[in-house]
Design a protein around this nucleic acid. Structure first.
Lengths: 254, 254
DNA sequence: CTGAAAGCGCTTACAG
DNA sequence: CTGAAAGCGCTTACAG
């Protein structure tokens, strides 16, 4: 693939017979150049197929109009939805989304964040509240805004947007108990921090109701087939189970 | 958020008492500088928390080690899987993934591609074979490799990686017929090009077997609940239906 | 083993 | 309304 040079502002300017500053002005606001110049520039732009180049601006202003997004998993439906929301809003506002996933491994997250920061991203969206010390340090040095998602309770570097995993689980289990279910099993996949927080909520609600908690957990990634298998195992072992609490399983949309 | 200046190579060099070229050399390959210099640079790098800056290289070499990925939808499980694969391989090789989705609208795709190209991406992955003329033009001017995914039959700009949607559907329906199913209904959501290709395969297989095709389609986005509703509608209208062909519905993983 | 110079493609003041 | 100069932070030859 022989990369031929892309047309630059200078190329456009040469064709019109003005300087690149004039073309630059036109690009920002066409009315800032003379009417006759406007027309000539428009034609040259079209003829050459000029594509804007953000690299100089990133270098000069160290602002990129790009944001970094880190998710632990892309196949977990929850994060697909989160990502869709982010890319939607960002795209509409002219921001580019730079994506990375790290398979729930903090060291991979660190590596990916380093890569993201090297592009001078203007902001960072994380899906986790725990990070390696170097990660925290890098983010601080970069001096950009960071939002941590999915958990509103764990301490955040700057700001967080999420919910109280323990309280949510607690209230959901309580509601189940009120409905008359007494043998509620907890199914948990991939025992990350948030899964554990939810399990605490489950255990608390069960304890308060003087019920016996019954957790079936695994370190495998959550999936439909894993859910099915855990469910079967539980029923085989505890046939009296009358309900399941499995917040961390993938759930269908709609 | 007051963006304090990030440490530069020059800052590191100043602290060590060498020039930035020496630090640059160290970063590429530590053994290219004197042993004693190596140690001093390592310390300064750590003390200042230097974060590499790709902007200058993007500007000078117009190569970014970033690739652009366009998917029509992020919540469609198929694309989540595709994306995971891409980000996996790219991340491991030191390439950054820049993501955009366009809701199956070619004009949005065009806009997003323009944005992506302005970052000097090194390659582009598309999920569609139809593009606006301006999109095709921009890609050509950019002079970067482009891969079109999900369809190996429609003509490609450069290369494609995918499968024959019509043939796949044809063979799957044929297999169903061989199994003895005779009243096979086709459920199709979001009638994009690929869905239509699949429907052709279905119709062909049905026609060859002298069976009556029975398609229930909608322009809504595919989802579990839509699948359920289409299924119910079909059964209500044609109670004799004995099987469904619904390639375009989301399917569970595993 | 290390340094001085030039350049990547824009934009931002400053002139006129 | 338009232009000449400087600069963003690196790397790439070229010297020594």
């Amino acid at each position: 693939m022989n990369k031929k040079r892309r047309p630059t502002l200078q190329d456009v300017a040469d064709q019109v017979g003005v300087t690149k500053m004039t073309v630059s002005r036109y690009l920002k606001n066409p009315t800032r150049v003379a009417q006759s110049t406007q027309e000539k520039i428009a034609i040259a732009l079209e003829t050459l197929g000029y594509i804007p180049n953000r690299a100089p601006e990133i270098l000069a202003q160290s602002t990129s109009r790009a944001i970094g997004v880190l998710v632990p998993s892309l196949t977990n439906q929850v994060f697909a939805e989160v990502l869709r929301g982010i890319e939607n809003v960002a795209g509409q506002r002219g921001y580019q989304t730079m994506l990375a996933h790290y398979g729930y491994q903090a060291e991979v997250e660190e590596e990916r964040i380093a890569s993201l920061l090297s592009y001078n991203i203007d902001g960072l969206l994380l899906s986790e509240s725990y990070h390696t010390p170097r990660t925290v340090r890098m983010i601080e040095t970069a001096g950009i805004p960071v939002i941590e998602m999915m958990d509103s309770v764990s301490p955040a570097i700057q700001q967080c947007v999420g919910f109280d995993n323990t309280a949510a689980a607690y209230e959901m289990v309580q509601a189940m108990i009120t409905q008359g279910y007494l043998h509620i099993a907890y199914l948990g996949a991939r025992m990350d921090v948030r899964t554990q927080l939810k399990m605490q909520g489950y255990e608390l609600a069960m304890a308060e109701a003087k019920l016996t908690p019954l957790a079936m957990t695994t370190n495998d990634a959550s999936s439909f087939s894993l859910g099915a298998s855990l469910l079967q195992q539980t029923l085989a072992k505890y046939p009296y189970v009358d309900s399941f609490f499995a917040l961390t399983m993938i759930w269908p949309q709609g």
